[in-house]
Amino acid sequence: MEKITSLADLKRIKEQVQSKIKLREQSASAEKLVQIRVGMATCGIASGAKETMSFLIEETEHQAIDAVITQTGCMGYCYAEPTVEVTLPGRQPVIFGHVNRERAREIIDRYIIKGELIDGMIPVNFKTIDE
C-alpha cells in the first residue's frame, strides 16, 4: 500500500474510494447488484451471524444473485440479532432482524428476488450526522 502523505492525498483517496463505490453502483450490472451487510459484533456473532453470513454467501452464489456481502459492527438492535441490512438497487436500505437460515432464505426468495417486503423488518429510528 502506498502511504498517504498529505491532506490532499487523503482527499484524493477518499474520492477514489467513493467513486469506486459509485462505479459499482452505476455499472452495467448495477440494476441487479444487491448490497448486504451482516452485523458482526460480539452480540451478533453470539446469536449466529457467522452462520447467517455464510449461508447468504452460499445461497446468493447458488442462485447467481449479484451481491456484495460485507460484515459490519453492531446496528444497535440487540433484541433482534442477528441483524442484516439489504440494499436493493435504487431503493432505501432495509434492516431485517432475527435472521437465521430460514429467515435469510425468506429474505432472498421474497425481498431480493421479488421485491416484496417481509414482516418484522426494522424501521431506521435514528438520524445520522448528515441530516
Binding site: G73, C74, M75, T83, V124, N125, F126, T128, I129
Partner: peptide, 13 residues
Amino acid sequence: KKQIRIALRNCGF
C-alpha cells in the same frame, strides 16, 4: 426519530 448517531455514526455501516 429520537436518536442521533454521532459516536455510533459508523457502527453498523
